[in-house]
Simulated scan of single mutants.
Amino acid sequence: MKWDDLRIFLSVARSRSFSEAAVRLGVNQSTVSRRLASMEGHLKTQLLDRTTDGPVLTETGNDLLAMAQRVEEEFFHIDSAVTGRDMRLSGRLRVTCIDMLVDRFLAPHLAKFTAMHPEIELEILTGLRSLDLMRREADVAIRASDAPTESLVGRRLFDFNLAIYAANSLADTLPDQPDPADLDWIGLHDEANTKRVVKVRFPTARIRHRVDGLFMQNAFVREGMGVAALPCYWADRDPAIRRIYPEPYAPNGLGFWVLIHPDMRRTARVRAFVDFVSGVLKDHQPWFEGRLIEDASATVRRRV
């Protein structure tokens, strides 16, 4: 049995979706289905029941899952131990972070880093799903978190502050310190996120609209469809929206982290990137903590 076949099996078992597994692995869905069918033929047993709700592990499939996870852990341990001794400032470097951070802040700094290290190949992986560094889905994570995985190592740089924003046209109609219950709120589909980010601080808030991404949430706010909790580092720089409550907050002690797998600490390209990006972020700490606002003309700054 080949390791690549086990990787496909593990991805399908975890996602319970052939299409999602294909996206994660970077292959066609037909390839996933064909390789799994080949595995079942080789083992002469059925590993998955194909149902209308997605693939479901059989009893044999569950047994194989436990064994495959142990093999995966050993493989990643070997891979990380060897890769972690790589002292070259070259090769592929996979970084996971939210797309808005790259779009609104990080892109020019990444360009500077790659100019400094022309043999390093950056691969930026964005999205709301947190990629697993322990499974080597990425090398570095730039992540807002209140409790990062204990098995990872990294730096908590500062508080990751949010504030409540509305379109200027909507904010003009609101009183100072409006009652949260009187507002239409725009939340994310993730109910746990909504509770952590909004409900803990504004328990009477009524979520009218839900979206599945930060770009869309920001767009709804700009169109005056409601208010939302947005990260200060980009919302304060958007001339079309403004805060309706002045004080920023870090829900549940939310912090901004740069994290790596412990075996990657000695890898030169990882260490160089972590030092570089941590320095850049610390230099802009007031933006992320919501203590510095830039007006629409980008010529006046004031502390709050």
Rank of each mutant, 00 (worst) to 15 (best):
F276Y: 15
R266M: 14
R201T: 02
M134W: 00
R201D: 00
R155L: 13
V270E: 03
S151V: 09
D238L: 05
R196E: 01
H261V: 05
R136W: 06
N218I: 00
Q217D: 10
R135Y: 01
A144D: 07
L259H: 00
P175R: 11
A228K: 11
F256M: 12
W257L: 05
D139W: 00
D212N: 13
R266S: 15
L254F: 00
P262I: 02
D172V: 00
L259G: 05
P248T: 12
V274W: 00
P231D: 06
P262W: 00
T194W: 01
Y165M: 05
D179M: 02
P231F: 01
A268N: 09
V211W: 04
V200E: 15
V197L: 09
R208C: 07
R266H: 14
R269Y: 00
L183P: 06
F202G: 04
D139T: 02
R196F: 00
V197R: 02
Y165E: 08
A141W: 02
R222M: 14
P175G: 06
I142E: 07
V258R: 01
M264I: 09
C232F: 00
M134G: 03
R206T: 11
L162C: 01
V258D: 03
D212S: 14
A235S: 12
P180C: 12
A171M: 07
A205I: 03
R201V: 03
L183V: 07
E150D: 13
D236N: 14
A219F: 02
A167M: 12
F202C: 06
L152E: 04
P178Y: 08
I241V: 15
D139G: 08
G187P: 03
L254T: 03
T267W: 03
L152I: 08
L162E: 09
A250Y: 04
P203H: 04
L152G: 04
E137S: 07
L170A: 07
I244L: 08
D182E: 15
A147V: 04
R201M: 03
I164G: 03
R237S: 13
V221K: 07
M264D: 14
R206Q: 15
T267Q: 15
Q177T: 12
R266A: 15
A268C: 10
A144K: 03
P239D: 09
G187T: 01
L133P: 09
T267M: 15
A250G: 05
M225E: 11
N218G: 13
G154P: 05
R208S: 12
L230N: 06
E247T: 12
R155F: 10
A171H: 02
A141E: 08
E150P: 08
L254M: 13
A141H: 03
I260N: 06
H261F: 01
N252M: 08
L152N: 06
R210V: 14
K195V: 06
A138H: 01
P262H: 05
V197A: 02
R237W: 08
A228S: 15
V198H: 01
R266D: 15
V198K: 02
D172Q: 11
A166C: 13
V258H: 05
R135A: 14
R143Y: 11
D179A: 09
E191M: 13
D238F: 01
R265S: 12
E247R: 06
F256T: 02
D159K: 04
R269D: 08
A167T: 05
N193M: 10
I241E: 07
L183F: 07
S151D: 12
M225F: 08
I241C: 08
